[in-house]
Amino acid sequence: MNSIVERLKEVRCQIENACQQCNRSPDSVQLLAVSKTKPATAIRQLYQAGQRAFGENYLQEALTKQQELSDLEAICWHFIGPIQSNKTRDIAAHFDWVQSIDRAKIARRLNEQRTAELQPLQVLIQVNIDDESSKSGVGPEQVADLAKYISDLPQLTLRGLMTIPAAASSAEAQAESFASMQRLYSALASQYPTVDTLSMGMSNDLASAIAAGSTMVRVGTSLFGAREKT
């Protein structure tokens, strides 16, 4: 079995190869290591190998790991799970990015609870691109209004969009979901100069996502192995 550091090298090679296939610079795609349910020791190993951005879904688990890893000064924490109103204070205080904003109420609370001595929280709007009832996110038609609302909040910086497409029945269906997100992202980026991030693609579809314009892929399984049940 490959070590976690070897798997990191393999994922970076996958990203580089995918970028070469569509004539993009590998530097145009950031790797977010999705570390939910994985121990702090594994995160530390990846950090020591050069990985800096880590994504967490579960707040209490994340806060425990952040405390264990408080000596890692350059680490960047992304919250990528659904957000309940009673969790916004801790998310605002302890994360650098939030990728899963899907309503104005959550954006407002994060803005109010992000203290002035901290840099603005970098945020993405989560889009439910395939209208799945089991997933969070706004519909494509709601992106513009939520973006406008966020752009007026001083302690948030709108950086772009995130999506988790439906499990595709075909390559064509997957490509259409990704293309729809790229169109939404391009429209948003043309309106807001801070928008530079399209978080799209995971372990099993990162090449297709990169071909469609993703600037950040969220990889868990290929780095850490199968996710443990919680």
Rank of each mutant, 00 (worst) to 15 (best):
R227E: 04
V34E: 00
K9W: 09
L118G: 01
A144Y: 00
T88G: 12
L153W: 00
S151P: 09
R159H: 11
V34S: 06
L8Q: 07
M162Q: 04
G213L: 01
P26C: 05
D152K: 14
S3A: 03
D131W: 11
M181A: 03
G213S: 04
S203E: 05
C76Y: 09
G81E: 10
L31G: 02
L158Q: 08
I83E: 06
L118W: 00
T215I: 02
C19K: 11
E176N: 12
Q45M: 12
A173E: 11
L59A: 05
A42E: 14
A147D: 07
V5R: 13
E68N: 07
Q51R: 12
S35M: 05
L188M: 10
C22Y: 07
F79T: 12
L72D: 08
N128R: 00
L72Y: 13
R108Y: 04
V219G: 02
N57I: 03
E73G: 12
E10L: 14
W97P: 13
S85H: 02
K229W: 12
P26G: 08
A147C: 05
T64L: 14
S25Y: 03
E117F: 13
S177P: 08
Q20C: 07
R183M: 12
L223N: 08
T197Y: 00
E117D: 12
L46F: 06
D152A: 15
E6S: 12
K135T: 04
A93I: 00
R109I: 01
L72N: 08
A49E: 02
V143P: 10
T163A: 15
A189L: 02
S208N: 10
S169L: 08
N204V: 00
K87M: 11
R89K: 15
A33V: 11
Q66N: 11
N23H: 14
K65R: 09
A173F: 03
R109W: 00
S169N: 13
R44N: 09
D102A: 06
A49C: 09
L223Q: 05
H78A: 10
I75C: 09
A168T: 04
N57W: 11
V219P: 05
